[in-house]
Structures are given as C-alpha cells and as structure tokens.
Design a protein around this nucleic acid. Structure first.
Lengths: 227, 227
DNA sequence: CCTGCTGATTATGTCGACACATTTTGTGTA
DNA sequence: TACACAAAATGTGTCGACATAATCAGCAGG
C-alpha cells in the first residue's frame, strides 16, 4: 500500500551512508585497511550488518575487497579524476541538451535565481567558501534532474559524484575560477531559456572541459615544481 | 604478496553472479517478489550470504528493496530503455573519440577482423543468431577498452549493459538491421584507423542513435496496432 | 456480502558463534 | 645477525537462531 513516505531506513542502510560520508570526507583514510570487527564495534553493529554495507560500498567502488584478505578504502589517482571528468563531460552535455527541451519555465527561472545567489556568495566570500563548491554541484544536479533521464542522474550519483567530493576533500581541488564558472553557467541558462538543445549541450561540455583543463594545468605545474 | 591471479571467488560472489544472470535471462521474472528463505534454500546458502548478494544487486538497480517488505526484481519500462540508449550515446561517443587517439594499431586491426567474422556470421545465419547480438556488444566493448578510460567501462558494465541484455532476453528487442549496423561499424573502424577522433565520436553517436530510433519506431508501431 | 478486528504464520533485520585462511609472533638454526 | 619454520592470534567467510514487523486466515459485526 506504500502509504508512508517516511522511509524508515534499515540499520544497514544507515551504516552504509555513514561509512560513505566517512570515506568521502577522509575520516577513514584512503588506502587504509578495514578491519571488520573493529569497524563493527566502532559503529555498534554486528559484523553481518556491516558486511552488507561493505558489499554495497564495494559495488560503488569506494572500497576494494579481495577474498580472505579483507577490504581496503580505494586510493585516488590523478588519472582517475581525469577519467571522471570525461564521463561528466559526455553525460553532462547530453543531459543539458535534453534539459533544454524538457525543463519547465519555472525550473529554468529557479536556476537563474540560484545563479544570483551564487554571484552574491562569490562576492561576499571571495569565492572560496565551501558553500560555493556545493552550489556548483547543485547547479549541475538541477540540470541533470531537468533532463528527465533517470539513468544519467543515477550513473553520476551512483559513485561518480561521491568520488569527486572525495577528491575535493582530499586535495581541495575545487575550481579556482569561480567568476569564470559563473559566467559559463549564465550562458548555459541562456541556452536553456532559448530552448537551444545543441547549444546547451555544447556549452555544458565546454564548461566541464575547461574545469578539467584547469585541473590538468594545475597538475602539470605541481609536477614541474617537484623536479 | 598477491601472487595468485586465480581469484578464488567467495560464495557470496558466486551467488551474486548467478542471481544476476538469472534475473537478466528472466529465469527470475521481472517484478516478482523475492523470498529470502526460499532463494537461500534453492541455492543452498545461508540467508546472510544471500543478503550480501541482494545488497549488491540492489546497488546495481536490478532489485528494489523496501525495508521490512522484502525485495522485488525490477520491472522494465520502455522509457528506461530509451534513457539507457541516451547514456550509451553520450558515453560511447566519448569513448570512441578517445579510442581513436589511444588504441594501438594491433587492436584496430583486431577490430577489423572481428567485423569480418560478423559479416560471415550474418551471411550464414541471416543475421538472426544470438551470437551476432553478443558480437555487437563485443565490438562496443573493445572500443570502450580502447578508450583507456576505466570509468566509462565501469559505468556501462556496472548495471547498464546487464539491463540491455535483460531487455533483449525479455522483448527480443535486438537490432533488426544487422547489415546496416555492420556498415556503420566499418565506418567507425575507418575513422579509428585514420585517428580521426572527432569523426569517430560523431559516427559512434549516430550509430547508437539510429539503433535507438529503430527501437522507438518499433515501439510506436506496436502501440498503433494495439489501438 | 462486505468490512474490520484479532490471532497465527511467515519473513525480515540483526546478532552471536564456528571453521578455516591469513598474518604475526616467536624460536631455533645456519 | 639473518633466515626459515612453527605456533599463536587475528580476521574473514559462512551459518543458525532470535526478536520484531508484515502478511494471512478466520471470525464477528454491520
């Protein structure tokens, strides 16, 4: 009958979420070995419950498990981050093109207001606040929802976005170009308003690509400094 | 020291795989409720082991679980299939563009030979064989690997491809245009040989898009017949 | 005949325990 | 001192059992 939208989460669900945020925030360090008895005691649950959560974490590629050797938190690599940005470029572009055809006028207007908030936040905090970073994700998230394609959102939410957050926490690899990004966001919204799917696709791809390029640039420089 | 590449799978892993293929092949029908004690007895494992597998299946969106109500196999919908093809279009195109820059000459030559096999298979079996369908997947799979982007492959393997296989088994919605598809494959390989990333991207997107269009066409017709 | 309550049955969520594999510790020998 | 081997300790894989929530059957009342 599905009356209650109050989804009473199961204990294993909560452990899964707690572990996920703990890993993403780096509270459980990358590459560290996970001891099941230890973690189970720390979270006050049985090993069975914990193992169920670990299985899901493994499926999300946040932990790696090898039989009889136990589980480890994944280790991040620069190459993987670039890979993720390429996936975002492809899917974000596709979603944005669809959104241009499918978003309601009200949703687009909301998006515009969101950008106004961002602009204010950037001016006040000089664009360094954590809020601004999550705001960037919020912008993309709304467009993904606007695409009306559940799979795109599902793919990005099912692992990829958590990984990006993880990189941000660990390497503070946030976009160092908030004003430029804002300008690009505004152009994207313009394309949405004009219902220009092709342009929206192109602008979104370019937007994500330049974010990636800026990361590549930074990485190149830090490599040079090392030598 | 990780000597053995002989990954001795854990029992839960095998149950997971068995269940996955059983669901994909329709041996466990879509939408059916899953009784944990029943399934556990059928596969000869304990409920804990089975639940671990179910958790992973849930993470792959092959089963849906609601707390205290149990698990159900997902139900397929036409809209979802279209969504999946859009994801494939975006990611397949991106992968193909990358593959044009990154595949080795040997890999491309192999790909060409694969197409020769396909052509022979089509002529012999009149393009209706099951092998041919899996061959189509093989073609795409190789290009995904050729992109050297693990994430793209991971996203498609982690749920989407199983879903597509599922649709094929259930609705036998295979491409009814094998010769046309082969021609498109050949053009894609040509673009790879010429290391033309832009063209390879474009051709792959168009290839997947026309596969989607042909499904949409068929769906439209069958809807008309119903009325 | 249908609706609503109550008890019985089944299923799910969670836990503790055992068997086996792995890692670590400790000891003796070259 | 370094190495090899054995034994203890720890950890993982798997199972069975209990408590609670959901489902079903049967019965009373409208």
């Amino acid at each position: 009958m599905q009356l209650s939208e109050i989804t009473s989460l199961t204990l294993s669900d909560r452990i899964f979420e707690q572990l996920q945020t703990a890993i993403v925030k780096g509270e459980i360090p990358t590459g560290s070995k996970i001891s099941e008895p230890e973690l189970a005691k720390a979270y006050g649950v049985s090993r069975g419950t914990l193992r169920e959560a670990l299985s899901r974490l493994e499926e999300r590629h946040l932990v790696v498990r090898s039989p009889n050797h136990g589980a480890r938190v994944i280790t991040l690599s620069y190459e993987e981050l670039i890979d993720i940005y390429q996936v975002r470029e492809a899917l974000g572009g596709m979603a944005c093109g669809l959104a241009a055809e499918r978003m309601s006028d009200a949703e687009i207007a909301d998006l515009k207001r969101l950008l106004d908030d961002h602009e204010r936040s950037i001016r006040e905090d000089e664009g360094l606040s954590y809020y601004q970073q999550e705001g960037e994700l919020d912008f993309h998230y709304r467009i993904l929802k606007g695409s009306r394609n559940r799979k795109i959102l599902g793919v990005l939410e099912g692992g990829l976005y958590q990984l990006m957050r993880m990189y941000r926490y660990q390497f503070s690899t946030s976009s160092p170009r908030p004003l430029q990004a804002l300008k690009e966001h505004r152009r994207i919204v313009e394309a949405l308003e004009e219902r220009d799917a092709e342009l929206a696709d192109l602008l979104m791809r370019r937007h994500i690509r330049s974010a990636r390029k800026s990361i590549e640039e930074r990485h190149r420089k830090s490599r040079e400094q090392e030598e």
